[in-house]
Design a protein around this nucleic acid. Sequence first.
RNA 1: GCGCCCAUAGCUCAAUUGGAUAGAGCAACAGCCUUCUAAGCUGUAGGUUAGUGGUUCGAUUCCACUUGGGCGUACCA
Length: 542
Amino acid sequence: MKKYLLEIFDELSYKLTYLKETDLIFTVPAQSNHGDYSTNAAMMLARALKRKPIEIANEIVSHLQYDKSKIEKIEIAGPGFINFYFSKNFVTKIVAEIHSQGKNFGKSSKFAGKRANVEFVSANPTGPLTVGHGRNAVVGDTIANMLEWIGYNVDREYYFNNAGRQMRVLGDSVRLRYLEILGENIEFPQDYYQGEYIKDIARKIFEESGDKYKNEPEDGIFKQRAEKEIFDDIKKTMKNIGIEMNIFYNEHSLYEDGKINKLLELYKTKNLSYEKEGAVWLKLTELGNEQDKVIVKSSGEPTYRLPDIAYHITKFERGYDLIVDLFGSDHNATYPDVLAGIRVLGYDTEKIKVLIHQFVTIMSGGEVVKMSTRKANYVTLDELIDETGSDVVRYFFNMRSISSHLNFDLDVAKKQSDENPVFYLQYAHARICSIIRMAEEQNLKSSLENLKLLQKDEEQNLLKKLYEFPDEILYSTELFEPHRIANYLESLAALFHKFYTECRIIGSEKKLAEARLALIEAVKIVLRNGLSILGVSAPERM
RNA sequence: GCGCCCAUAGCUCAAUUGGAUAGAGCAACAGCCUUCUAAGCUGUAGGUUAGUGGUUCGAUUCCACUUGGGCGUACCA
């Protein structure tokens, strides 16, 4: 429907050239008595043309050439809205389109041939993924899916650091637990990793090698083993919610191939850095930021900024058209420095999209669960998946705007009941599958021959919603807002459930039953496609 | 102090780059299963969109200030 409107307006713009002055926007009005689609173009143009909106609207409508079998009625309403009413017959045509495109329905080629890199999770291997990481993981993977749907070739990338102080503390935590198992009297510092998993790793080393490593330093076997065990665990957790990274980028490699030193030299020769109090500072104030920051400590060790900048430069070197960084609000102060450091070297930072999601609050029994990795007071993502299932986890993290704090109510998530919104969608899909099975038993098959019989409100509303799907994906993706897809699917499922209660299939007149079967098959395709973007399964039975 | 994010129905949240009468789910109340899955549907009730100003044909949306919360504000990442 929208496609047709764009066509006829494009044609009209040769006659009324002022139409080219504004971006034409067609929206689905909240009120059904405002038509199927509506545009505010006349109002938008009013100021520029210094004419009355109603007058412009009248001019547009009177010059518009359109097929009366497609558009039934055009009205001008309110301060100057132009409302379009499509013919019922035309509306039904979407069913055939969905059938022919199948699992590709909703895809767009707008960004075909473009390459995107989505960096997410990026947790250092110091402990299992927590529920806190879960939001990042799920949203990142979903955004990657969405970008694929609009044509991008996407790399999913995990950036990590297995060097530095954090990892030394990790290795030493394991070492102390190991010595503890050997019966030595140890003092375990408060700021070391307190989790049980540290003891598990120490126990494994002991069981395999006895006291062989009694005198090993912390950054030898202990660190290596801890890193491997923890990383394996992280990968397993990601796999459990359907996430597969295709690039793991090690920060350490930036040192090994000299990128860090090269960058440091570059800043120096460009006179963008200076030494003070034994440290190297980047002149960020000259680049418009609030204060200069240290890039190399007086100890000679770089701060995270320098490798972060070097790392992002590799993303440009690797030729991406779009670079997406997703992280939690605790990192919100870091990215302006990194961006400034990259921009000054001539890279187009417009290609970088920084997404910041707010924190997750875990609720259990009406109480807030406080979390800290260091203190080992957390719910792991794996525990959550075990208790609720991957679908619930993915849906909960996807269903809210990332700029909102997310309340994750463990009690609701665990319930296999109508309080849990993911089942509402899956139930719609399962119901459709069930009807199709029943129909088959009665030798009833869907047909695209008599779609024009789909005239009832419940049918028409459902059909109109189906039209919106490709637009919704494109729009949601360009805004990087996965929750819109969840919202869309919920309203589609609601319209289906209404249709289900009002319109019977088995038992209806044959031609109508065939057309309705075709309709619900189309709904099934859209539900399945939408759920697959979210990474949620579409069960055949429930 | 400063920066980013947030404040919408009792609770959790939507609201198409400023649109027409602010919508869902849960909870509450009243109904609907001898017919394709009641994990569903229908109805009732629930709002000064935190507050005050401003911008304009029009503001939940944009701007300023105030209040209340989250996260930052390192020679940690």
